[in-house]
């Protein structure tokens, strides 16, 4: 499966200009592509959380992670194991609903627990927050009706909670 090459890295960085470029630069210099990226301040505004997914073999990734850790502005870095973390992504999608497709699209909205954000006679804008794989499915099912525009945020993730005794 190509999917076990995907790794989710979570870093806490100083919320300062240029930090994202420094982080991204360590990937681009090796020709690694960042598949997905989400950045926003943490609860403490002087820090940001960067969550990114890369499609890289483990060995070179370990090296990049160590080099990321050396960046002066990177405070903390870890790789999240898919088995012990929870990830979510948000998608906004505008889909065509002409020719009586409205009701079938609404059935999908129900099934996926998506929301209708906006609509007119010919198009409907939907939002769905879910696991990234679930977004893929939703996207595939909507495709036959005609996707007008689509935007995903990139995944965010946190470690799963452990059982407390």
């Amino acid at each position: 499966m190509p999917h076990n090459r995907f790794h989710t890295i979570v870093t806490t960085v100083e919320n300062k200009p240029g930090v994202l470029a420094r982080v991204a630069g360590l990937f681009s210099r090796r020709g690694f592509n960042i598949e997905s990226l989400a950045v926003a301040p943490t609860d403490d505004e002087s820090f940001s959380r960067i969550t990114f997914t890369v499609d890289v073999e483990s060995a070179p990734l370990e090296q990049v992670v160590k080099q990321l850790d050396k960046l002066i502005n990177v405070v903390n870095i870890r790789e999240l194991d898919p088995q012990s973390s929870v990830d979510r992504e948000l998608m906004l999608v505008t889909v065509e609903v002409e020719e009586g497709h409205r009701s079938t699209v609404l059935e999908l909205v129900d099934e996926f627990r998506a929301y209708v954000l906006n609509e007119n006679q010919r198009e409907m804008m939907l939002s769905l927050a879910a696991r990234p794989a679930r977004l893929d499915e939703f996207e595939e099912l909507l495709r036959p009706y005609g996707i007008v525009e689509l935007q995903r945020t990139g995944r965010v993730a946190l470690p799963s909670l452990e059982e407390k005794s």
């Binding site: 200009p17 240029g18 470029a21 420094r22 630069g25 210099r29 002066i72």
Partner: peptide, 14 residues
Amino acid sequence: TTGITMAVTKHNFL
């Protein structure tokens, strides 16, 4: 300058 030298310095400041 900070963009150009990012990869060739331990750190840089603007």
